[in-house]
Nucleic acid binder design. Structure first.
Lengths: 124, 124
DNA sequence: GTCTCTTGGTATCTAATGGAAACCATGTTA
DNA sequence: TAACATGGTTTCCATTAGATACCAAGAGAC
């Protein structure tokens, strides 16, 4: 059962996928959708700083990769609901860990940055 | 013990950190350095497609964040060795999971993409 | 002696990407 | 009739990524 793909190889398709999931917005979207299915503008409002264009692009790519499911309802103004696919759900287990690692270790990082900046700018 | 940071808030410092660690090259570097300490050009050769400039920038940022330790030896041509800090090591536990999730689920993603493209371009 | 290779980077240039803002059709409400 | 909601696409500009060349200091080949 050796793995057949290698992220370190340039031409490996995993590179493309890693490039897609190692993305701030994709991770936040996955994490948000893991809670419950959501609509376009709800996501836009929830994730501060995420523009419509990038939201649209990111959702489209996630849908293409089979991570997100898009369902459109022919209501008065069209309603579009996004949710995680089973595959997307398995990714979220590791992806959300990354997002929340940042929250847990923020203090330590802030201290490291301050120390680095003191050493660098103030240093002899 | 509620968390004091929120990745969904725009001005939260975790955003900055998430932006940094949700990066293809940073993840691959962390994963590579988790194995053993390595020198600059070794990393460049091992991670295909990674340019000197981006390697240099990424390492510098990771060092500033306290994730990577840089040690220079005054040898003949200067020797510089990079290794993970304890903090970097905790990150790698979740970060490498992301990189290798791509390897494990590659086939399913490729199939999803093919299905999506058939539906999109060939669809009625 | 000098040509070329190594080390670990920086400087420069260009192509691709990211984000802000405007625009779109359709329909409801004030 | 003007404004707002829906879910986007288009346009523009600034930042970024990547390719390439360059740098100093030495080691080894010729």
């Amino acid at each position: 059962m050796r793995q057949q793909y290698d992220v370190y190889a340039m031409r490996c398709p995993t590179r493309m996928v890693l490039d897609r999931i190692a993305d701030k917005w994709a991770l936040l979207l996955l994490d948000r959708l893991a809670e419950e299915p959501m609509r376009f503008n709800r996501l836009r409002r929830d994730i501060e700083g995420l523009s419509q264009k990038v939201l649209s692009q990111t959702l489209k790519r996630l849908e293409r990769d089979g991570l997100v499911f898009r369902e459109a309802f022919a209501t008065v103004p069209v309603t579009v609901e996004y949710s995680l696919t089973p595959l997307g759900r398995t990714l979220n287990e590791t992806a959300s860990a990354l997002a929340h690692w940042a929250e847990r270790n923020m203090d330590e990082i802030l201290q490291a940055q301050a120390a680095y900046d003191r050493k660098t700018s103030g240093g002899s």
